[in-house]
C-alpha cells in the first residue's frame, strides 16, 4: 500500500486518515495538522522523510503562479527543503491545471457558472488558474485579495490589474512571515468579525464565491442568499457552516473520500506517487491525463 501524508500548518482538528483505491492501487492518505506551529511542521516532515511515498504541504502555499511567473513563499520553501528524499508538493502544480478544468466543466455541463455572473474570489493569487479561467469565460469578477488580506476596499476587476499588482508586490511579499498573509492554526477556526461586517456587501452581491475555503469561511457573513461556493477542502462541519450561513450549492474541485474533500496538496501528492516520476519531469499534461484516467469530477452538493 502506498502512503501519502499531508502535513499542514492548519488545525489538528481536521486530522483524518482514509484508505482509497486509485487506478487499482491501494493508498493510505492521512493528514497531520500542526496548529500553526512551524517548527513542529519541520519536525514532522523530517520524521516522515524517506518513510512515505509522497508528502503534501497543507495550510501553506509554496509556489504562486502568475501566468508564466512563479513566486516562492520563503516560509513554504523552508518546509519543502526540510524533506530530502520523499517527493513533496504543495498542490500548486495540480491546482493550476485542475481548477481551470473544473471551471470548464461547470460552464459546459452545469448552470452553475455562466457568462456575466458575479463572482467573488476571496483570494486569487493562490489560484491564478481559476482566477484566469473565470475571467476568460466572461464572469464579472471581483478579486478580493486586497480587501480581505489587508482590509483595503479595492476590488480588483481584471486579470491584467491582478497580474500588475502581483508582479509589483509578490517578489517582496513572499518574504514576509506567512502568518501575516494567511490565517494559520487557531485563526482558521474563527471568523474575523470586523471584516465580516465591513465587507459583507461583497459576499451578498456575488452569485458565486470562489477560492480557499479557510478564507471564504473567515469572512462569510450570515444571511447569504443561496450563492454557489466553489472551493476545495471542506469537512462535514464546513458544510453545516455553509448551510447555516445560507449558501445554496457547494462545489469542491477535489474528490470526496469519507465525507470530506481533500486539499489539492494531498491529491497532487497521490498523483506523484502514482506517476512515479521525479517532480522535475512531471508537467501539466501528466496531471490532466491522470485526472481523465481517474475520472475526477467536481463534487456538487445542494445545501438547501
Amino acid at each position: 500500500m502506498k502512503k501519502v501524508v499531508s502535513v499542514s500548518l492548519g488545525s489538528s482538528k481536521r486530522d483524518h486518515k482514509v484508505q482509497v483505491e486509485l487506478l487499482g492501487e491501494r493508498f493510505e492518505i492521512s493528514r497531520v495538522g500542526t496548529d500553526g506551529d512551524f517548527n513542529r511542521a519541520l519536525e514532522v516532515l523530517r520524521e516522515l522523510d524517506g518513510k512515505v511515498d509522497a508528502i503534501g504541504l497543507g495550510g501553506i502555499d509554496v509556489y504562486l503562479f502568475v501566468r508564466q511567473k512563479r513566486y516562492a513563499i520563503h516560509d513554504g520553501l523552508k518546509l519543502m527543503e526540510a524533506v530530502k528524499v520523499t517527493p513533496v508538493v504543495d498542490g500548486s502544480g495540480l491546482k493550476n491545471t485542475l481548477e481551470r478544468e473544473v471551471v470548464r466543466i461547470l460552464a459546459e455541463n452545469t448552470g452553475l457558472l455562466k457568462k456575466g455572473m458575479k463572482v467573488l474570489m476571496v483570494s486569487s493569487l493562490d489560484r491564478f488558474g481559476m482566477a484566469e479561467a473565470l475571467y476568460d469565460m466572461g464572469c464579472d469578477m471581483t478579486y478580493g485579495d486586497l480587501i480581505f488580506t489587508m482590509g483595503m476596499p479595492y476590488p480588483v476587476k481584471t486579470v491584467a490589474e491582478l497580474e500588475d499588482i502581483a508582479n509589483r508586490t509578490l517578489p517582496e511579499l513572499v518574504k514576509m512571515p506567512f502568518q501575516m498573509l494567511y490565517p494559520t492554526g487557531k485563526k482558521q477556526e474563527s471568523q474575523d468579525e470586523a471584516k465580516v461586517q465591513k465587507f459583507a456587501g461583497y459576499y451578498y452581491e456575488a452569485e458565486v464565491i470562489a477560492g480557499d475555503f479557510h478564507l471564504i469561511r473567515r469572512f462569510m457573513p450570515a444571511g447569504m442568499s443561496g450563492q454557489t461556493i466553489l472551493t476545495n477542502t471542506t469537512t462535514r462541519d464546513d458544510i453545516e457552516f455553509l448551510r447555516e450561513k445560507g449558501a445554496g450549492t457547494l462545489v469542491t474541485t477535489t474528490p470526496e473520500f469519507e465525507g470530506r474533500s481533500f486539499g489539492t496538496n494531498v491529491i497532487e501528492a497521490a498523483m506523484v506517487a502514482i506517476l512515479g516520476k521525479t517532480l522535475e519531469r512531471i508537467d501539466a499534461e501528466d496531471y490532466l491525463e491522470l485526472l481523465r484516467n481517474l475520472n475526477f469530477q467536481p463534487r456538487i452538493l445542494r445545501l438547501t
Partner: peptide, 18 residues
C-alpha cells in the same frame, strides 16, 4: 496593527516595485 503593517509595505511596493 498587522493589517496596517502589511498595507504600509504594500504601498511602498506599489510605488517602488517592478
Amino acid at each position: 496593527q498587522e493589517d496596517d503593517i502589511i498595507r504600509l509595505d504594500f504601498i511602498s511596493l506599489m510605488i517602488w516595485g517592478e
